[in-house]
Design a protein around this nucleic acid. Structure first.
Lengths: 180, 180
DNA sequence: ATCATAAATGAACAGAGTGTTCGTTATGTG
DNA sequence: CACATAACGAACACTCTGTTCATTTATGAT
């Protein structure tokens, strides 16, 4: 990728996430972004079709980084079985999320809702497998929705209570799940 | 309230919620609303300052109806104690939500996120009291956030699986909470 | 039924943002 | 160096916003 493109893209991301700390997503205009990023109008549109596409691209960047290993990795079982695997996996994801400098900015505002939707999409893939192994008297559809939302919301809560470690948060999360 | 005002307000609500079924909240313009409601531009603005205020007003209408009794009612304890009360209260709220014709339209789209924020605000008041009586090893802040999101998301799920009764949904919800 | 009150109307307005175009300039790459 | 390509910036038509105001219409109280 051309050095100029990288620089421009970076400037847009910085400007955008910076603005997200100051105003809501819907109140941010393309004009705001290009003014802060100090780039030309046509340059912005040569990178992203719309503001929404920008947000999507940013989310994808974060998720691809976080979930790259988890989605491809062989689901090996260790001595203590399934549950231990899930806790490890969750802790692992939380460590990755902790590293993302953009995540907190994105989650702590209205655009968090859009992020959450993408986030939940990825999470479904992870929990679906877990759910198949679980016996329950409530509908699977309910349980999957519950797990996905629960985890995503746990992360959102965590971003406002960063004093806790990934291990602690994983523990909090699992203590309220119907898995055992 | 003047008959004309009521009629206009109703037309706006109808147009707005109808549009919500077709496009996302942010893609709906004031122009869309007044065209469908068949009212003048200035009439809209004499009722609501902005599109956001319209959504807020609509949410308030729904909530005031649903929570009016719950928030003021004396928290009497029956024979089986606290837990039974909570289940009753939840079932009761679910019955009210089931009656709202606008709720499904609002929840099944992007603006659902905005609705959810208002919704959660009300729910916090309800669960805060419940939480005080609960002993737990996870932070209260986490548990409150968890309960509130969990319930709101349960309702959202329910709107897409209406085959279940309020009693059943209350049961699903309580089966995944750390209360006992 | 009358009449003052209040609501709805519609046209017009400035202002702001959008998304596109295109010729020019500058910056990396081979 | 020379070529390719990215960024620039000015201009464009377009849409939406939120406000104003003079006019018409409906309402509720008497």
């Amino acid at each position: 990728m051309d050095r100029r493109q990288k620089k421009t893209r970076q400037a847009i991301y910085e400007a955008f996430t910076g603005l997200l700390e100051e105003k809501t997503y819907s109140n941010i205009t393309v004009k705001d972004i290009i003014d802060r990023a100090d780039i030309g109008r046509s340059t912005f549109y040569s990178h992203f079709e719309t503001k929404d596409e920008l947000l999507k691209a940013l989310c994808s960047d974060i998720f691809d980084h976080v979930f790259a290993e988890n989605l491809t990795r062989e689901t090996t079982h260790d001595f203590s079985g399934r549950e231990k695997n899930l806790e490890d996996e969750i802790t692992h994801i939380l460590y990755h999320l902790k590293d993302s400098s953009y995540l907190k900015r994105i989650l702590s505002c209205e655009s968090g809702e859009m992020f959450m939707r993408f986030f939940k999409g990825y999470l479904e893939k992870i929990f679906e497998g877990e759910l198949e192994k679980t016996k329950t008297h409530v509908p699977k559809s309910y349980l999957l929705h519950h797990m996905v939302c629960d985890f995503a919301e746990t992360v959102r809560w965590w971003m406002n209570h960063e004093s806790y470690s990934p291990e602690q948060v994983a523990c909090f999360f699992l203590s309220t799940t119907p898995f055992q």
